[in-house]
């Protein structure tokens, strides 16, 4: 559905996107994750045909974005970071207008509008001016606008930004529901959003993809038997000394008194470490293998990039 090959975007001296490669299959929800300024919005803007790329190729639903922009635009729905609504129009007039410029045939306008109004829960504000609506309703109107012409692909730029927790859950559920009918690419800098909605994650930092996998696999990868939490009962100082002198340990982090978080060198058996600790007379209360949250994966990947 989406195929991107060595996509580059330069703004004068600054390179916002430095050669992205990825592919999205039909029916996937792909999460585009990265800190602010990583190049997410830029990439989405290129894919939706809003701005041209400096170099590289992007194919949407079989059409090249640069050579066939009109065909691409017929097949996509796009929710920019700020919902593109007209405050002085009513929801009804607005959806009617969008259906018009998205070339929805006349006889399908009514059923398509009814469908998005029902899906996005806009029925009770249908005749109100958008300017009077709350942020949550504006955002929903924005989502309704993106899907009114039943596009094959939906691009959502930070769809939950600025919403309250209940609205966030509602929007996430809506996105999951939409999965049956659209391929979805959503960008976000909020991590739980990805684990809550996406089937695949692309982590982008400084214009480069640093990881591409399912949310579970990404978490699994960093777990990779290297992270442990060791709680010491007695001889805490001795434990600290012993641990910090061990070559097999990459990183130590004392979380609270007596609780150490360690990251071992690859292919190290934890029993070696426990043995050494026990031999030096330290009493261990517990050893827990840790699973990194997506947050840690994210930090790990992005900071690693910085060290390079």
């Amino acid at each position: 559905m989406i195929k991107v090959t060595s996509l580059v975007k330069k703004y004068g001296e600054i390179t916002a996107v430095k050669g992205l490669n990825f592919e999205v299959k039909e029916g996937e929800i792909i999460g585009f994750l990265g800190p602010n300024g990583a190049g997410k919005t830029t990439t989405l803007r290129i894919l939706t045909g809003f701005i041209p790329a400096t170099d590289g190729k992007a194919e949407i639903a079989g059409y090249d974005v640069f050579e066939n922009p009109l065909e691409v635009k017929r097949n996509i729905g796009y929710l920019p970071e700020f919902p593109p609504v007209y405050p002085d129009l009513t929801v009804k007039d607005y959806l009617d207008f969008v259906a018009g410029i998205k070339n929805v045939p006349k006889h399908k306008k009514k059923p398509y509008t009814d469908y998005v109004v029902e899906k996005c829960g806009l029925a009770n504000v249908f005749n109100r001016r958008i300017g009077e609506l709350s942020k949550g309703y504006k955002q929903r109107t924005g989502i309704a606008q993106a899907m009114i012409h039943k596009p094959k692909i939906l691009f959502l730029d930070e769809p939950t930004s600025g919403l309250d927790p209940i609205q966030i859950i509602e929007v996430r559920n809506l996105i999951k529901e939409l999965r049956q009918e659209h391929t979805i690419m959503l960008s976000t800098h909020i991590l739980p959003e990805v684990s809550a909605t996406c089937s695949k994650v692309l982590i982008i930092n400084k214009g480069l993809i640093v990881a591409e996998d399912t949310p579970e696999n990404l978490t699994e990868k960093l777990k990779s038997d290297n992270l442990f939490e060791i709680k010491i009962m007695e001889e805490i100082e001795k434990a600290e000394n012993t641990l910090s002198n061990m070559e097999k340990i990459k990183k130590i982090n004392q979380k609270e008194n007596g609780v150490f978080e360690i990251e071992t060198v690859d292919n190290t058996s934890i029993s070696d470490i426990i043995n050494t600790l026990v031999h030096s007379g330290v009493k261990i209360y517990s050893v827990i293998p840790k699973t990194a949250t997506l947050e840690e994966v994210f930090l790990h990947l992005t900071t690693k990039e910085e060290v390079k």
Binding site: R45, T48, L70, E71, V85, I101, N103
Partner: peptide, 14 residues
Amino acid sequence: KSGTFELLMTSPLK
């Protein structure tokens, strides 16, 4: 200013 330009430019509109 309001960002609706993005909507217009990503619609099949010349």
